[in-house]
Write a protein that binds this DNA or RNA. Structure first.
Length: 816
RNA sequence: GCCGAAGUGGCGGAACUGGUAGACGCGCUGGACUCAAAAUCCAGUGGGGCUAGGCCCCGUGCGGGUUCGAUCCCCGCCUUCGGCACCA
């Protein structure tokens, strides 16, 4: 028999798909009319920093299976692809490999495109975009200017994260445990003037509009909520009487205001130098400030380290009781959260308590569980039924009411107000690197900051000799490019030389796909609103608070700007697990990387596609086993031989019913439902394998040839989303054509119903026997059947039956 | 420390709504085919026991509970993984 040759068959069909433009989905002529149900299946686009790895293979195979099934179920499916080509990963790859980033990246893109075609993924290549192309950049810059006009992109000096290795600033989201997300170097704090997106203005929308999402993993939503970190509390104004200065603090515990025993400023607080100027403490305190500035943020944030601080000798007045509290300076107070100053309540805050112990400061309990008299001078954590004590007119109030009453009291005297604070910071988007989208802003001596006029976009990256990072943007070296004329007044101007974070590019690529060749505007709104929001997004969980948060922010802004008709970009999100190999996450440094190309060469793309989804639930981390893919190749061989044998027999009348026909219908019911409703990709493969095993048991019985043919065709059709090449080849040999266009097999409900079922009989909840009985017997008939069984009688053994439970269609339980 | 997810055979996993635990694959064992091997096909495969061709007991991280019945629900632990972590 003809052996299966995956290389020949796979290339044959890839060629046919391309020639027949099988998976190209043009936009509808009139997007306002819905001609056919449509759906948008999207996977996170790759960084072309190298070739595809197994994580990509899993990601895009998941999307591919879903897209095939949806298409065959009658949907018009948008399934585009592109490249996140700018940014550190790509630029560092170029530096590593040598050569201009553009050349290296375009070479990588060409290789990735080939790999994708070789995997047989059904992609609409007419919509392919890469974020480094001027035709894409132009619109990234255009969008930036729209943000700028609305005050949502702004420039300011602030303490920022600086990666000494990558020689650029980073967004907060790109700092993991005080280290650079890309290279792992410990980040430094620097005060620099940088570009920010005002994502904090959308903090509440980002929280509240989670309700618009259809299905996101709970842990991703939790991570975003934690990252945004909304805290409800109050801002309270303390006064330094001697200097007539007011210092507001943020607190979530206004109910503990009477327990404040000291006051702490962050070392970076602008009042510190003024406060100590000319005092005997000046030298000591400014030394401490310098020392704190020199400490790394990792070191400073280490909770194991003992707290440090210095007293200023100055005092503030507590607005609620006029008590004078000593002002300290300590680096456990962060300048970037709240107001950079805190009221310290050691009895009710662990950090304040630790500091008070260290420096022997008083501890005053003002909240305690009802009826309890806590020991003075101790730390009293939150408890149920807590009430205020020792708090003047507020004493005795439950904590929640006390909070409200104190805030109202402060508000009425203009000493404070209810306030909300967020952990989220504005998104720092400028980068001092070459390989990014230029920020389209000019600095004019007389007009100030001026956006590049829309008609002059895109601002192209200048060619420079030296694009290695060196602390300031390499673009600054292109002097001819930097010096320009102001479009407003015609005077001297110079260009912004920083480039944008690559996460800006990836915050809107899914919109561009909808209208990828539009050179009048970034997209036509009607077309974008037709396809979007994305119905199913698939990608890695590593983007939970990076890309996924940024893209949500972008869409909200674009909606507010009237450019889009929806608020959330991705209705359903699926985060796939990672693939481990030889006991560890695959990585080049560990030397345990599997190459998709090698696996395709040895087993074929279909076997790779099958195994990567068969390994386990797609959301779980799973261990690649070399023998596993062999199992899938073996199954494909089994299906191949079956298909050829059935094809050779020629057309045979297919019976309307029969055990194997019913098995095939059961498989049809399971595969489609598992993929589309349960988002489960491993069990459908098992169901098809099971069906094929059943066919093998029947295939040599001449009386069942018709059934065998029906079941074989069903198996081929059902496996098509996973193994499209072999399925297509067999389908053709079985006398049909174009399986990718064939309607998805629908199970006939009548054939799923059974005439008999296996009744499970339990005695005291333990299975004692099973018996095949007709469907439709009533409870007493089922009980009679059960009690007749010898093994059941042995367990009843003359004992009195106390209770009889009947689950129709399933089981009987006799309790004795 | 806080938040989240998960613990099932030798291994990856299945069991969807509280109703037959271990589907399917890997591995292993035996058989057929072969001079032989590979490939293929067939059968077996959670552990233990017995008066073995049939039955009994145990078994889904541990200890309790609810229930006729629990991998599934509740309470308390243990372990692993992920996220956050001086955020006032």
């Amino acid at each position: 028999m003809e052996r299966y040759d995956p290389q020949a068959v796979e290339l044959k069909w890839q060629d046919i798909w391309e020639r027949e433009r099988a998976f190209y989905v043009p936009n509808p002529a009139d997007a306002s009319k819905t001609d056919k149900e449509h759906t948008y299946v999207l996977e996170m686009l790759p960084y072309p920093s190298g070739e595809l790895h197994m994580g990509h293979v899993k990601n895009y195979t998941l999307g591919d299976v879903l897209a095939h099934v949806r298409r065959r179920m009658g949907f018009r499916v948008l399934r585009p692809m592109g490249y996140d080509a700018f940014g550190l990963p790509a630029e560092n790859a170029a530096i590593r490999e040598g050569g201009h980033p553009r050349l290296v990246i375009e070479r990588n893109i060409a290789a990735i495109r080939e790999q994708m075609k070789r995997m047989g993924w059904a992609i609409d290549w007419d919509r392919e975009v890469s974020s480094h192309e001027p035709s894409y950049d132009r619109w990234t810059q255009w969008l930036f200017i729209r943000f700028f006009e609305k005050g949502l992109a702004y420039r300011k000096e602030a303490p920022v994260n600086w990666c000494p290795n990558d020689q650029t600033v980073l967004a907060n989201e790109q700092v993991i445990d005080g280290r650079c997300e890309r290279c792992g170097a410990e980040v430094e704090r620097r005060n620099l003037e940088q570009w920010f997106f005002r994502i904090t203005a959308y903090a509440d929308d980002l929280l509240d509009e989670m309700s618009l999402l259809e299905s996101w993993p709970e842990h991703v939503l939790t991570m975003q909520r934690n990252w945004i970190g909304r805290s409800d509390g109050a801002e309270v104004v303390f006064r330094i009487e001697e200097q007539d200065v007011e210092i507001p603090v943020f607190t979530t515990r206004p109910d503990t205001l009477f327990g404040a025993t000291f006051f702490v400023l962050a070392p970076e607080h602008p009042l510190v130098p003024k406060l100590v100027e000319g005092t005997p403490h000046e030298g000591e305190i400014m030394d401490y400030v310098r020392q704190a500035a020199g400490r790394s943020s990792v070191d400073r944030a280490d909770p194991e380290k003992e707290k440090t601080g210095v007293s200023t000798g100055a005092f503030v007045t507590n607005p609620v009781n006029e008590e004078r509290l000593p002002i300290w300076v300590s680096d456990y107070v962060l300048m970037e959260y709240g107001t950079g100053a805190i009221m310290a309540v050691p009895a009710h805050d662990e950090r304040d308590f630790e500091f008070a112990e260290r420096f022997e400061l008083p501890v005053k309990v003002v909240v305690a569980p009802e009826g309890e008299e806590p020991e003075e001078g101790t730390y009293v954590p939150h408890a149920e039924n807590e009430r205020l004590v020792d708090s003047a007119q507020f004493t005795g109030l439950p904590a929640a009411e006390g909070k409200q009453a104190i805030v109202e009291w402060l508000e009425s005297r203009d000493l404070g107000r209810g306030a909300v604070s967020y952990r989220l910071r504005d998104w720092l988007l400028s980068r001092q690197r070459y390989w990014g989208c230029p920020i389209p802003i000019l600095y004019c001596e007389s007009c100030g900051m001026v956006p590049v006029p829309d008609e002059d976009l895109p601002v192209l990256l200048p060619e420079v000799d030296e694009y290695l990072p060196k602390g300031r943007s390499p673009l600054a070296a292109a002097e001819d490019w930097v010096h320009t004329k102001c479009p407003t007044c015609g005077g001297e101007a110079h260009r912004e030389t920083d480039t944008m974070d690559t996460f800006v590019d990836s915050s809107w690529y899914f919109i561009r796909y909808c209208d990828a060749r539009n050179d009048e505007e970034p997209w036509n709104r009607e077309i974008a609103d037709y396809w979007l929001p994305v119905n199913q997004y698939i990608g890695g969980v590593e983007h939970a608070i990076l890309h996924l948060l940024y893209a949500r922010f972008f869409v909200k802004v674009l909606n507010d700007l009237g450019l889009l008709g929806f608020r959330e970009p991705f209705l359903r999100l699926f985060t796939q697990g990672m693939i481990h190999y030889l006991g560890a996450k695959m990585s080049k440094s560990k030397g345990n990387v599997l190459s998709p190309d090698d696996l395709i060469a040895s087993h074929g793309a279909d076997a790779v596609r099958l195994y990567i989804l068969y390994m386990g639930p797609a959301e779980d981390d799973i261990e690649w086993q070399d023998t596993g893919i062999e199992g899938m190749a073996r199954f494909l061989g089994r299906l191949w031989r079956l298909g050829l044998e059935v094809a050779e027999r020629g057309g045979i009348d297919v019976p309307a019913d029969g055990p194997l026909v019913r098995r095939a219908h059961q498989a049809m019911a399971k595969v489609g439902d598992d993929i589309t409703r349960r988002f489960q990709f491993n069990t459908p493969i098992a169901a098809v394998i099971e069906l094929v095993n059943e066919i093998y048991h029947a295939k040599d019985d001449p009386d069942r040839a018709g059934e065998v043919r029906f079941a074989t065709e069903a198996a081929v059709s059902l496996i098509q989303p996973y193994a499209p090449h072999m399925a297509e080849e067999l389908w053709e040999r079985l006398g049909h054509e174009r399986l990718w266009e064939a309607a998805w097999p629908q199970a006939d409900p009548a054939l799923l119903e059974r005439e008999t079922f296996e009744l499970v009989v339990q005695v005291n909840g333990r299975v004692r026997d099973r018996v095949e009985v007709p469907v439709g017997l009533d409870d007493s008939e089922l009980l009679d059947r059960a009690k007749e069984l010898p093994r059941v009688r042995a367990h009843l053994d003359g004992k009195e039956i106390r209770k009889e439970i009947v689950v129709p269609g399933k089981l009987v339980n006799l309790v004795v």
